[in-house]
Structures are given as C-alpha cells and as structure tokens.
Amino acid sequence: MEQGPMTPSATHAEESNRLIREKVEAAFPEAILDVYDFRGERTLIVAQPHLKEICQFLRDDDALQFNLLEDIVADDMLPDFPRFAVNYHLYSIPKNHRIRLRVPVEDPEEGPETVASLWPIATWLETEVWDLMGIRFQGNDSLRRLFLPEDWQGHPLRKDYPLGYEQVQFSFNWEAIEAKKPSPQD
C-alpha cells in the first residue's frame, strides 16, 4: 500500500515493521541478535561490527528510505552485562515509518563506528553521548566536552556517578554554609 509522508494508520506501523525486519534479515542474516517488540515499537538489536552497513542499507534501500536520524541515545544498564547500549532512532519521512536499532556496547572506549558519513548530524549527537555517557565512537575525532566545563572529569549520566546532591541551608547548618559564601568585600 502506498503511504505518503503524512498518511498514518494503525496497521501501517505493523506492516512496515514486518517489512523492515524481513529486508534487514534477508540482507544481513547474522547481524541481528534479537528483535524486541514493546507497545507497538520494534527494536532490532544488532551486533556492533555490523551497525554501519545496516544503517547504510536502511538509508539507501528504496522501500525503506530512512533519511532522518532522529536521535542517538545511550543507555547504562548497570548491573546487567553488556553494560552500555546505544540506540539509534531512524525515521523515514517519505514512507512514514520508524525503527530503532540497539547496539550493546561492552567497552565504552570501543564504541560503534560513527554514522556521520550517512547522516551528518550524527557527529553532534555522538559528541553529546561521549560527553555525558563516555562511549567513544570510532572515526569521530571531534569528541569533546559539550555540556560540561572542559576540565570536568567523569561522565555524569553513568549509573555509578553520584548525583552531586548538596546540603540545603537550614537553620541548623546556617553558619557553616554562610561562612563559605563571598562577602561584599571580595
């Protein structure tokens, strides 16, 4: 059934999920580790070495045409193993369907290969992932501190990083905290 960019329907999502899975499994039979369906969304769990070629296939295939990389989200699954997972949310504007690729990452220093040659926005999104979660993407050499000051150490969104909760100034600790604040003579 021919679907334009803005003609939605409930069965359209199931049809396209089925079509996407069939095509990817036909092209890369050994790359898909698992398929996860939850609340109408399909996630293809793919192995790290095959990520870039699957993304290339998804973008260039005529029936799929995933031309918009919506987001790259990193997840910390502590205490599960493998600890990290990187989600790629892809969307096709002409065909109006969506898919999520999830890549389990064991070693954050050896992350997946960058997909910046397919979607240029990936550089920016991967820098954010490195800044906050610490997963290094191969081939992306502009990974730098984006949100945090340059000399910050650590990656805050990891589960073993503390929240940084500071003591609130109540009457019992008023003097102690007030002494550390600057006075007008500074």
């Binding site: 000051p149 910050w152 150490q153 650590g154 990083y161 503390p162 940084g164 550390k180």
Partner: peptide
Amino acid sequence: MTFGVSSARSGME
C-alpha cells in the same frame, strides 16, 4: 573516577 574538578569556588579563582 573523580568527579567535578571545577566548582564555583575554583571557577572564581
């Protein structure tokens, strides 16, 4: 893994 080298105080200096 240490965290947060730059605090407001050290930022001031």
